[in-house]
Design a protein around this nucleic acid. Structure first.
Lengths: 212, 212
DNA sequence: TGTACATCAGTGAACGCGCGTTCACTGATGTAC
DNA sequence: TGTACATCAGTGAACGCGCGTTCACTGATGTAC
C-alpha cells in the first residue's frame, strides 16, 4: 500500500506544461553540484535526483552537456542579479567594496557552480561536439556581470575616489583578482591567508589609494 | 614477424630498477594531460599510454589518485625551478616582471597540469580516501613557489622600488592576481582582454607605482 | 664454473558496475466531432 | 453532453562499452651453494 505510494511514478505533466520538467532537471543538476563536482555529474544521476527515469531526460535535453549549459546560464543570471542587488550603498567606494564581497560570497556559496562558470567553459569549448555559435555567444552573459563592476569603478572615478583612467581595464583587473582569490581560497584553505587580502585587491586594482 | 615485434610485451625492468616504470607511469599521465583534462584520466588510459597492462599499475601505485598526486608533486617542483630560473636580471623590478611572465607562461604551456595543481587539490582533499597528513603537507610545496615571489617583492621594497611594507601579503596578492589571470585567460580566450593587464597586476599588487 | 631456486616485474582473462543510449510501450490529457 | 481518437510526457528493459580491480600465471633476473 505505502509501498505502492513510495514507488509510484511521478505525476506526469499536462500537455502545455512540458517545460516544467525541464526546469526540474536543471534544478536537480544544480542541487547535485552542491554535493560534488561537475565532472562527477552523470545523466543518470541527474535523472535520479529529478525523480525520473534516465530516458526521460531526452525529451528535454539532447545530452548532459546541454543540461550543464543550462545550469551555467542560470548561474550567470543569478550572479548578475546578486551583483546588482549587492552594490547598493551611498558611497561609491563602499559600493565597490560591497560588490567585491558579494562576488566572493557567491563563489564561496556555490563553489562547484562557480568553478563550472569560469573553469569548465573552455573545457566544453574544446569538446568535439561544441556548437561554434554557442561558444561565441557565451562571453556575452559574462560581460553583463563584468559591466556591473565597470560601472562601480567608473562611479568611484567620477567621484574622485579612484585614480583609474580606464574603468574597463581596472574593472577587468579587479575581476581577475577576485576570481583568483575565490578560486585559491577554496583550493588552498590551509594557506595562511593574510587578513584583508580582499580589501587590498579592491583598493589596489581599482586604484582607490589616493594618498600616494 | 614484424607483427610479433609490434605486439611484443615491453622489456621487463631488472630487479633493482623497479622504480623505472614508476617514473614512466607518471610521465605517461603527464603526457595525457597535454591532451585532456585530469577528470578524463583513467587508470587504464595511463597504462595504455605507458605501454603496459592495466594491472601493472598496481605494482607502483595503489590507485589513480596516487598517480595524479605524483604528477602534481612533480609539477610543483618544475614550477619552483622555472620561477627561480626566470627571475634573473639586474633590476629588481625587471626581475619581478620577468617572474610574473614566467608564472603565466608556465600556466599557459601546461594548462591541465596547472589546473590540477591549483584547482583539483581541494577536490582530492574532500575525497573520502584522502590521507589527512598528506593533505596537510600539500601546501608546503606551494609555499616554496610563493617564497620566490615574496623574495622578489622584498627586493623591490629594499631597493625603494615598491611601497610594500609587507612583502608576504603583497606577494600573496600578486599570486592571487596572476592565478586569476592565468585561469581566466584560458577559460575565456574570446574576452576582449585589455593590453597590459599582466603588467598592471604586477605594478599595482606589488605597489610598484611610486609616482602617486 | 654450473646448477637449482627464490624473487618479483609484468601479463591476460575475468568479474561486476554504472554509464549513455535505443526501443517499443503505457496511459493520462486534451480535442474533434 | 458523450465518445472516439491523436498527442505526447514519461517508463522499463535491454544493449554494448570502458572502467577499476582480482587472480593465478609467466618467465627473466639475480643468488646460494
Amino acid at each position: 500500500m505505502t509501498e505502492t505510494q513510495a514507488t509510484a511514478p511521478r505525476a506526469r505533466n499536462a500537455r502545455g506544461e512540458g517545460g516544467r520538467l525541464r526546469g526540474e532537471i536543471v534544478d536537480a543538476a544544480t542541487t547535485l553540484l552542491q554535493q560534488g563536482s561537475a565532472e562527477q555529474l552523470t545523466l543518470r544521476a541527474v535523472a535520479r535526483a529529478a525523480g525520473i527515469s534516465a530516458p526521460s531526460i531526452y525529451r528535454h535535453f539532447p545530452d548532459l552537456a546541454a543540461i550543464i549549459r543550462a545550469v551555467v546560464d542560470q548561474a550567470f543570471e543569478e550572479l548578475v542579479q546578486v551583483l546588482r542587488t549587492g552594490s547598493r550603498g551611498t558611497d561609491p567606494v563602499e559600493r565597490l567594496h560591497a560588490l567585491a564581497q558579494v562576488y566572493l560570497e557567491f563563489a564561496q556559496q556555490h563553489p562547484q557552480r562557480y568553478r563550472l562558470m569560469f573553469g569548465g567553459a573552455w573545457n566544453a569549448a574544446e569538446a568535439p561536439g561544441a556548437d561554434p555559435e554557442e561558444v561565441a555567444s557565451r562571453p556575452r552573459i559574462g560581460l553583463e556581470a563584468l559591466q556591473v563592476i565597470v560601472d562601480a569603478v567608473q562611479e568611484c572615478a567620477d567621484a574622485g575616489a579612484s585614480r583609474s583612467t580606464d574603468a574597463f581595464a581596472s574593472a577587468t583587473a579587479l575581476w581577475v583578482g577576485l576570481h583568483g582569490l575565490a578560486g585559491l581560497r577554496q583550493t588552498t584553505p590551509l594557506f595562511p591567508w593574510p587578513g584583508g587580502v580582499d580589501r587590498q585587491l579592491v583598493d589596489r586594482l581599482a586604484r582607490l589609494e589616493l594618498a600616494g
